[in-house]
Amino acid sequence: MEFFLQQIMTGLSIGSILLLIALGLAIIYGSMGVINMAHGEFVMLGAYGAWAMNAFFGVGLLPSLIVVFLGVGALGWLVERGVIRFLYRRTLDTILATWGLGVMLQQMIRLSAGGELRYVEMPSVLTGTVGILGVDVPGYRVFIFVFVAALFAVTWYLMFRTTFGTKLRAVVQDRSVASCFGIDADKVYSLTFAYGAGLAGLAGALVAPLKSVSPEMGTTYVVDAFFVVVLGGVQSLFGTVASALMLGELTGGLAYLWNDTIAKALVLLAIIVLIRFRPQGLFVSRIRS
C-alpha cells in the first residue's frame, strides 16, 4: 500500500512539473492559436534568470520568481509586438519565426552566460522531506505541486472570471466582431502572450533546482509541453491539467515497472493512438460556431 501511495505521489509530482511547463503554452497555443516553438527557450530563460539573480545579486529562488515572471513576460510582450502580430493566421510562418527566435535565444545565452551546465540552489526551507500519509516526499516537489495548483487557479480565474478573460475569449471567437464592440484586440493578444511567456519563465525557474540548467534545456520541455496541450484538447484548461497528471502517472508507473527508456516510448505510443481516435484531444471546450 505504501509503495502504491509512493508511486501515486511520484506521478503527481511528474505531472505537476509537466503542467507547470505546459500551462504557458496552453494559454498561447490554446487561446491564441500561436504555435510557439520558442516556448522551451522561455522556460530556459526563466531558469537562467533564477541562476543569474542568485549568482550576481545573491537573491534566493523565491524572491527571484517575481523578477523572472515580469522579465520573461516583458520579453514575451516584445516578441508579440515585434514578430508574432504580423503572423496571425499564418501558422507555418509562425512556426518558422518562433523556431528561429528560439535558436537565437539559445545562442545569445550561450554567448553571454557560457555553455557550462549551471544549477540553482534550492531554498533551504524546502530541502527536507515531508511525510504525507506515511510516505516521505521531497519538500521541494510538494512545493512545486502546491505552486502549480495556485498558478492554475489564478489562470483559470483570469480567463473565466475577469473582464480581461471575457475580452480574450471574445477576441478568440471572432476578432472583428469583438473589435466592433470596442475591445482592443491587439492589446488583449499581446498581454495574453506576455502572460503565457511569464508562466513559461516561472516554470524554468522552478524546475531549475531539480534539473540542470543549460542553453539547450528548452528543447525537451517544448516537446513535453506540446504533448500535454494537444492530448488535453487545445482549448481546454482543465484538459491540460487532466492530461498532465495522466501523463505523469503513466510515465512514473511505467518507469517503475520497466525503465525510463521504455516508459518514454510507451507514453509516446499511447499519445499517438489516442490522437488517432480522438484528434481533438481528451476534452473539448464547447464553443458555439
Binding site: 509512493q6 508511486q7 511520484t10 509530482s13 511528474i14 512539473i17 516537489r141 531539480l210 534539473k211 540542470s212 525537451t220 510515465t251 512514473g252 518507469a255 517503475y256 525503465n259 525510463d260 527508456t261 516508459a263 518514454k264
Partner: peptide, 13 residues
C-alpha cells in the same frame, strides 16, 4: 535512462 533524461523520481523510488 535515455541520454539527456532529467526526471529521476521513478529511479529514486
Amino acid at each position: 535512462v535515455p541520454l539527456g533524461h532529467s526526471e529521476f523520481s521513478s529511479v529514486i523510488n
